[in-house]
Design a protein around this nucleic acid. Structure first.
Lengths: 192, 192
DNA sequence: GTTTAACTTGAATAATGATTCAAGAATCCC
DNA sequence: GGGATTCTTGAATCATTATTCAAGTTAAAC
């Protein structure tokens, strides 16, 4: 017997960052050995192949995101407050460094979603989990806000999520702080 | 002297379709020779290299889009009518075949925009042209609608475009006709 | 302390990638 | 029709890719 020398979560976060920066196809195995510190053989032993490493990184990404948003939503006093925090965080990420500008899920979906069923399934699953997370915020009976019907909450959450994708893409086209804030403000207005 | 045997526009449209279907990195030169009918040497002679072919395809894409939307907007009687047509067309594309589901500009930006300055410039230029095209619709003093200030038109057009990106991405996550139509309807409501 | 199973190493492999180039073919101009 | 110019051809080249594997190393178990 022998225990693995590397820390799985660290390896996955490094791989994840590389995938977000360069995209799946342009993240070569040499690059992955470099950023993870693992030799090819170890990667193939632990994750089967490059695609397996991507799938594991996607799961890690989603787990990290869930924690991040649960913290972000803690102690919100109203739907408006929760969405405001979310949007501020989003705009901050869009203006931040390369590796946080993009969402691993949508970036990967855009790049290779149509070409691989396993990856498409993994991404769809994780993206609808993300949609649920937002939908829950719309469904909470806030002390300071009126309650929404299930149907209305679903529709509004969907529009919100769709616009979040839009803001991320818009930020890729032109990274202007005032434009992004204006878009976020407007989205908040039409959502709440 | 000798005239070229191939039709440049046809070649570019075929290349464009391949780039939209497979993405830049996964559209190999063998694939490009297949879809364009040109031999490697001819491609390198006419477009310098693979990147040059992409840049030319981007220009052709934008030229085609401009014509498409000018036709689409012809004889609109109000802003609402123009946007309605645009959104119907958009949802139709999202539900249609692979090569029309995506926008070459945003797809390429997502995949390799950060990695190549020339491509980023070309995409930014074309995307802001597209934004202008939509902005013009908001600025027209329609017979049936009230006029907007320049500033208000710019802001609304920007939010609209951002949401169009969002709808395209959302369609990639789940291609549900009723969801897409509901998103389009809501976008129309908050835009006009 | 020896065994044993598991992890690590990194060079070798085989496939695929973009790009070049020299030879051949076709058209225009005089 | 002859020459000049340009386009076409496609095999060869060189770089890069993902993946494998056999040898080496480590630590837990008895």
């Amino acid at each position: 017997m022998r225990t693995a020398e590397f820390d799985r979560e660290t390896v996955l976060r490094n791989a994840m960052q590389a995938f977000m920066t360069y995209g799946y196809n342009k993240t070569s195995m040499p690059k992955l050995t470099e950023v993870t510190g693992l030799h090819p053989g170890s990667i193939y032993c632990a994750f089967k192949n490059k695609k397996g490493l991507l799938l594991a990184a996607i799961d890690q990404y989603q787990a990290d995101r869930r924690v991040h948003y649960q913290k972000l939503f803690e102690n919100s006093t109203s739907l408006r407050c929760a969405l405001e925090r979310f949007l501020q965080d989003l705009v901050g990420e869009c203006l931040g460094d390369e590796s946080k500008k993009v969402c691993l899920l949508t970036k990967t979906l855009n790049e290779i979603g149509e070409q691989d069923a396993d990856i498409q399934t993994a991404l769809s699953t994780n993206l609808s989990q993300f949609e649920s997370l937002i939908r829950q915020q719309f469904l909470i009976a806030w002390p300071d806000s009126e309650a929404l019907s299930e149907d209305e909450a679903t529709k509004r959450a969907r529009f919100f999520i769709m616009s979040v994708y839009g803001i991320r893409t818009y930020a890729a086209t032109q990274c202007d702080s005032s434009h992004l804030n204006a878009l976020a403000d407007r989205l908040l207005e039409v959502s709440v």
